[in-house]
Amino acid sequence: MTAATAQRQLPTVMAINEALRQLMREDPNVFLAGEDVALYGSVFGFSRGLLDEFGPERVVDTPISEAALVGLGVGAAATGLRPIIDIMFMDFMGVAMDQLVNQAAKMRYMFGGKARLPLTIHTMAGAGLNLAAQHSQSLEAWFCHVPGLKVVMASGPYEAKGLLIAAVRDESPVIVINHKALLGLAGPVPEEMYEIPLGQAAVVRPGTNFTIIATGRMVHESLAAAEQLREHGIDAEVIDPRSLVPLDTETLVASLRKTHRALVVHEAVRFGGFGAEIAAQLQEAAFDHLDAPIGRVGAPFSPVPFSPALEAHYVPNADRIAGEVLRLLGRAA
C-alpha cells in the first residue's frame, strides 16, 4: 500500500505467486518445498502453476514431516542452494522447532561465520477463520527471540511480494509470515521485482499527534481505528514495521518524537508479545518525549478459541484499538 506507483491490482495470494515465479526464474538455485505445494498448488493456492513452469525438481511436494522439511532447507542452504520452505500453518512450526531454533538460527555463528544459510521459511499465521487453537496462532515472538533468525510480517499484497523477494535474496534464514485472512486482499503491486529492505518500516498513514504501530492484519484494523479517531480530533500516524528482526527502531522513534504518544498493536497474545519489545525500545530511546505510557493491544492470554462468539472477542479490532487510544489519552471511549 506504500510506494503505490503501480496501478495493477493483485490479491495477496497472487502477489506471493508472482514473487515465487520471478525468484525461481532469476536464480536456478531457488526451489520451493512443502506439503501440497506442487501438484495442488498449496492449500492456500499461492503456488498454483509453479510445478508446470519449473518441474518437480524445483517445486517439491514433501511428506508430512515438518522437521525433515525444515532440515531439508537447512542442509540445502548450507550447500549452496537457496530454498524456500513452506510450513503450511505457522502452528506447525512447533513440529520443526529444533531445526529452526537450534540448527538454522545458530549454524553460522557456531561455525565461526563459515556457514551461509540463504534459507526462507514461508508460513501462514493468524486467526479469524474459526480454525481453533492449532491453526490460528501468531507465533512471531518465538522467533524474534532467537538470534540468527530474521522475521518479517506482510500486511498486504505489496508487502507480501517485496518482503518475500528480499527474504529469498538475503544470505541468512528469514521467516516470512503471511496472514491467511489477507490472502484475498487486493492492492497495487508492481509487475517488476522489487525488495522491501529488511529492517525498513513504512509509515502507512501519516499523522501528527498519535502513533499506532501495527503488524500484519492489525495494520488494517489500525487504519480503520485512525479513521474513527479523527472524529475525536486525533490525527493518528500508522506505522507498519514490516520487518521485526531487524527492526527499524529509528522510524518508530522519529514518529514518537513527533506525536509523543504511541500504541503497539498485534494479533498475537499481548503478554510476552513483540509489542513489549517495541514499547521498551521506544521508552528507552525517547522517554523525555512521552506524554503518556506506551499502550499495547494484543490477544488475551489464552489459546485461540473455536467458537465464532469467542473468537470475535479474541482478535483485536478497530474498536478496541480506538478505545485503547482514547483510554491512553484519558478520554472515555
Binding site: A133, Q134, A309, L310
Partner: peptide, 21 residues
C-alpha cells in the same frame, strides 16, 4: 465451544481428543 471439530474430545469416554496436528 472452544475446540470445535478439530479438538472434539470426551475425557469420560477416554476419547483424548481429535487433533489439529
Amino acid at each position: 465451544g472452544k475446540g470445535g471439530s478439530m479438538h472434539i474430545a470426551d475425557m469420560d469416554l477416554g476419547m483424548l481428543g481429535a487433533n489439529g496436528i
